[in-house]
Deep mutational scan, measured.
Amino acid sequence: MIIKINGKYYKIKKIEKNPNGKYTITTENGKKYEFKNVKIFSEEELK
C-alpha cells in the first residue's frame, strides 16, 4: 500500500488506529506519521 504525504509517495509498513480516532502510519523507512483522514493508494492505482 502507498500513502501520499506532502506530495511524496511512501510505502506503508503498518497502520494503527488510535483511540483518539487518528491513524498512525509507519512507512517502510521507519518514520511515523499521525493523521485524522487518510487516503491509501494501491500500487495499481498509481500506474
Rank of each mutant, 00 (worst) to 15 (best):
I3K: 01
N37S: 11
E28A: 12
L46K: 03
I12D: 00
P19K: 10
Y23E: 01
I40L: 10
G21H: 02
I3T: 03
E44S: 06
E44H: 04
N18T: 10
G7C: 05
N29V: 03
Y23C: 08
K31D: 10
Y23W: 14
G21A: 01
T27Q: 01
K11S: 06
I5R: 02
K31C: 15
I3Q: 01
K14A: 12
K8N: 08
I25R: 00
I12S: 00
G21S: 02
K17C: 15
K47C: 13
T24G: 02
T26F: 10
G30P: 00
G21I: 00
F41V: 07
K22E: 11
N29P: 02
I25Q: 00
G21F: 01
N29H: 10
K47Y: 04
G7Y: 02
E43Y: 04
K8Y: 10
Y23M: 05
T26Q: 05
M1G: 10
K22L: 14
M1Y: 10
K22T: 14
E28G: 07
K14G: 11
P19N: 10
T27C: 14
P19G: 09
T24C: 07
K8C: 10
N18A: 09
E43N: 03
K39T: 15
K39S: 11
G30I: 00
V38G: 07
K47D: 13
T27H: 03
G30Y: 01
E43L: 03
F41N: 04
G30A: 01
T24K: 05
K13D: 09
Y9K: 04
P19S: 14
I2K: 05
K11L: 08
F35W: 05
K47S: 15
L46C: 15
E34L: 09
I15E: 00
P19E: 10
N18W: 08
E45P: 04
I2A: 08
E44N: 04
I40R: 02
N29C: 14
E43W: 03
G7K: 07
I25W: 01
K32W: 06
G7R: 04
K14N: 12
E45W: 03
K4R: 11
E43P: 05
K17M: 13
T26G: 00
N37L: 08
N20E: 10
I15V: 09
K11P: 07
I25F: 04
E44M: 03
V38Y: 03
K17W: 08
K13Q: 14
G30E: 04
F41E: 09
K4F: 09
Y9D: 05
N6P: 00
G21E: 03
N20T: 09
N37T: 13
T26S: 03
E45Y: 04
F41G: 05
V38L: 10
M1L: 15
I40Y: 10
K11W: 07
N29I: 05
N18S: 10
K11I: 08
Y10T: 06
E43R: 01
